[in-house]
């Protein structure tokens, strides 16, 4: 029985309470990481996609709107700064307007023509107002870049918040570990003093306690990450229909194990790797904090 505790430090009895606390912090870290990941991908999408898009609306005042749109499309297609330009089909426009126009929308004949164009990101800027003045002077322009910049700022702010939450989770882990190690040192003070008297080096005592803290950190980290990861997988499942229309037909809650597994595997693979790092980082942080705390505490002994 005493073989496994041969140095008398007896570290395994008092600090199991650390695991649930670390698990809670790791779950918060996993959720923050999920928030960061979502904000990051949204920012990138807005930066690369939405911000480059422009919506053009040609009012059908004299019944020639569709012809004007065709001419405008031909001109803009040949412009080096334009990546693509599409005329929205009339059926699609009627679908979009139906919530506002109701059944009257089906019979209206003077609907405007809507074009969507995407600018090239690394190309000379197209002088859109000049082209429009020449080809279609009555066109209304909606530059997505205006609100795209705001969205980008919002996305980056969300990322900063997620980083801050991760940082706070790190501080909480360090604080909890310090407290736990100090309790261990207080409880095992006599033993440590005896070992010190027999010539135990500071590193030996510190590493024994630090490895114990790292093990507890890893256990708590794994539990917390699983909880946080499962929560994120469920949230991801719930928002999936909004992101992908093909997924709209899936049941809200899976009925079998493979369904639940598919909920987990639906998470982005890069995010999985980040989640995998959480318990390892928690363990490493616990180890370093415990090592430092014990070394500092041992300074009081000659």
């Amino acid at each position: 029985m005493s073989r496994s505790l041969s140095d008398g430090l007896h570290l395994g009895r008092r600090d199991h309470g650390l695991v649930p606390v670390i698990a809670a912090v790791a779950a918060i870290a996993a959720l923050a990481l999920g928030g960061w990941s979502a904000a990051h991908s949204l920012s990138r999408e807005w930066e690369n996609g939405a911000a480059q898009r422009v919506t053009l609306e040609i009012p059908d005042v004299d019944g020639n709107a569709r012809e004007t749109a065709g001419r405008l499309k031909a001109v803009l297609q040949s412009d080096p700064g334009i990546a693509s330009i599409e005329i929205m089909p009339e059926e699609r426009l009627r679908e979009l307007l139906q919530p506002w126009l109701g059944s009257a929308g089906k019979t209206l004949t003077d609907l405007p023509v809507v074009l969507t164009l995407a600018r090239k990101s690394n190309a000379p800027t197209t002088d859109l107002p000049l082209i429009l003045d020449t080809v279609a002077p009555s066109t209304i322009v909606e530059e997505n870049a205006r609100w795209g910049a705001q969205l980008l700022l919002l996305g980056r702010s969300l990322q900063a918040c997620a980083w801050l939450a991760l940082l706070l989770a790190g501080f909480a882990t360090a604080g909890v570990t310090t407290l736990s190690v100090r309790m261990t040192l207080h409880a095992r003070r006599r033993t440590i003093e005896i070992l010190h008297g027999f010539g135990a080096t500071d590193s030996l005592v510190a590493q024994r306690i630090a490895w114990r803290s790292a093990t507890l950190g890893l256990s708590g980290g794994i539990i917390g990450t699983l909880l946080g990861g499962a929560t994120l997988a469920i949230v991801h499942r719930l928002i999936q229909p909004f992101l992908d229309h093909q997924e709209a037909s899936l049941p809200l809650w899976p009925h079998n194990m493979s369904g639940w597994l598919s909920v987990l595997t639906a998470l982005p693979s890069g995010f999985f790797e980040s989640l995998f790092c959480v318990p390892l980082l928690v363990a490493a942080l616990s180890f370093v904090v415990a090592l430092t705390t014990v070394h500092l505490w041992l300074r009081r002994l000659a």
């Binding site: 073989r3 140095d7 027999f198 030996l204």
Partner: peptide, 9 residues
């Protein structure tokens, strides 16, 4: 184990 402490250390 008490006696073995110094040599183990």
């Amino acid at each position: 184990d008490n006696i073995a402490l110094p040599p183990r250390l």
